[in-house]
Design a binder for these strands. Structure first.
Length: 483
RNA sequence: GGCUGCGUAGCAAAAUGGUUAUGCAUCGGUUUGCAAAACCGCGUACGCCGGUUCGAUUCCGGCCGCAGCCUCCA
């Protein structure tokens, strides 16, 4: 299979260092706020990558870190007047809840910066011993970028250009403006850990170097994250890790594109972000996941209600195809579709094409259902299993269409009462449960039998107002679903 | 200014040196009491200008436009 490698700027045939085994590290969240759709993209993209590797039979170790100490966390905790650990725990919990909703499987290891302090200190000490890092005039420890000759190889930058475009205020404590902090001295009252250089905390970049090599070894296969981490974060990670170990750090660098709003990057600093928590109120999480996978992971992804609505309609089409089909364990699979799907995924995880295979499969399944063909179960099972690789289509269709709520009545009503009520459903409370919908459906079927089209249409229209869609079938039965 | 990347039909989004992407929307048909869903049919799109080629949306060059990074950000 081929994967686009940021380091070489081209698709390369992927070869794990150890046959059959893959180590993958992805930069995770800094937990001082809720996850937004941009974070969702990273989670979903690399979850899909992980699922596919495992499907291909690789033994994958997937590590995704949590940054649970940094300036923003300290500031936010101070604003709230709470312990930073209380703050981070709250947002870690919220993140895990978002992940579960999006069917993002947990990574194998989820290291936290605050639990990796010894490894961080050890790596900084090595860098100082090797002459790649120094203690600045303010006591902070800095990485000496000019000492690392291949600095800039990932982002395609060179030191001269960087200096020419310098727009950071020069920190007097540094020897060179491009040098970055490895260990930051604590101000009074700030969270801190003891180190050979005094009480302080790790810089942002060092934690990822320490945690990744700690969990996966000095040299591993894949490192991922958002595009914006290419520089300086990942560049600095390379400098730190390769500087400290003297070995190649990572073979393949994968970066996902941004989520945009009105053609601008969605980001915390621009304030144009939508949190998952909020979006989930309006759209099912699976719709969000589908929306993300409908574009290639390296392309920009424009966020809008229109896009989400279309994703919902599209996904509904797939669930409609799966509706009313019995599934059998160990059903035969349709190889042709599996092959087309795999071919797409083998080409740098081309999920839009993989999804198009799902739609072709759905069309054939719909035809098979109409014709009552023999291969209905195989088609449906294949569709579901391929969907599973993308983390979609795993709900029971009754659940997707909102037909799985309680079966008993909420109201004490006679049939007479129901017949009266059916004539003016606008009086019926919103969010009718299963039993009541079934009841009204029956009343409508009776109306149809006696060719009382007016009443039948009225019931259908009124229910539509409530987001309940009735569909008559050729065999005279009626099915319903929630929008 | 430097460095990346992008520009595809109404919208979204892929592949591809000559052959159907796909989804949504629209239109026509089948079906239906009418709908809905489903099925069938319908789209000659590839920023502009040159070049290479028998042939370019696809390769090369220039231009224009957009985005990202160069400061915390997935």
């Amino acid at each position: 299979m081929k994967i686009y490698n940021t380091l070489t700027r081209k698709k390369e045939v992927f070869q794990p260092r150890v046959p059959g085994k893959i180590g993958m590290y992805v930069c995770g969240m800094t937990v001082y706020d809720y996850c937004h759709i941009g974070h969702a993209r990273v989670m979903v993209v690399f979850d899909t990558v992980a699922r596919y590797f495992r499907h291909k039979g690789y033994e994958l170790t997937y590590v995704r870190n949590i940054t649970d100490i940094d300036d923003k966390i300290i500031n936010r905790a101070n604003e709230n007047g709470e312990e930073f650990t209380a703050l981070t725990q709250r947002f870690i919990d919220a993140m895990h809840e978002d992940e579960r909703a999006l069917s993002v499987l947990p990574p194998d290891v989820e290291p936290k910066a605050t639990q990796s302090i010894p490894a961080i200190i050890a790596m900084i000490a090595t860098l100082i011993n090797k002459g790649l890092a120094y203690v600045g005039t303010n006591g902070d420890v800095f990485y000496s970028v000019s000492k690392f000759t291949s600095y800039g190889k990932l982002s395609g930058k060179n030191l001269a250009d960087l200096q020419a475009g310098e727009r950071v205020d020069v920190d007097q404590a540094k020897q060179d403006p491009l040098d970055f902090v490895l260990w930051k001295m604590a101000k009074p009252g700030e969270p801190s850990w003891n180190s050979p250089w005094g009480q302080g905390r790790p810089g942002w970049h060092i934690e990822c170097s320490a945690m990744s090599t700690c969990c996966l070894g000095n040299h591993f296969d894949i490192h991922g994250g958002g595009m914006d981490l290419q520089f300086p974060h990942h560049e600095n990670e390379i400098a730190q890790s390769e500087g400290a170990t003297g070995e190649t750090f990572v073979n393949v660098w994968m970066h996902n594109g941004f989520v945009r709003v009105d053609n601008e990057k969605m980001s915390k600093s621009l304030g144009n972000f939508f949190t998952l928590k909020d979006v989930r109120v309006k759209y099912k999480p699976e719709v969000i996941r589908f929306f993300i996978l409908q574009s290639h992971y390296r392309s920009p992804l424009n966020y809008s209600d229109q896009q989400l609505n279309e994703a919902k309609t599209a996904l509904e089409r797939l669930y409609t195809a799966l509706d009313d089909v019995l599934f059998l364990e160990d059903s035969e699979q349709i190889v042709e579709y599996q092959e087309r799907f795999n071919e797409a995924m083998n080409d740098d995880f081309n999920t839009p094409v993989a999804i198009s295979v799902l739609f072709d499969l759905a069309t054939e399944l719909n035809i098979a259902k109409t014709n009552k063909s023999q291969n209905i179960i195989e088609l449906a099972s294949t569709l579901r299993n391929l969907g599973d690789l993308l983390g979609i289509l795993q709900l029971d269709s009754n659940s997707w269409f909102g037909r799985n709520d309680r079966l008993e009545s909420s109201y004490e009503m006679t049939d007479e009462d129901w017949n009266e009520l059916a004539k003016d459903i606008s009086k019926v409370p919103k969010d009718l449960p299963f039993y009541e919908i079934e009841k009204l459906k029956q009343i409508r079927l009776d109306a149809k039998r006696s060719k009382n089209w007016a009443l039948a249409d009225q019931i259908r229209d009124e229910l539509k107002q409530q987001g309940i869609i009735l569909e008559d079938r050729p065999d005279g039965t009626t099915s319903w679903r929630r929008e």
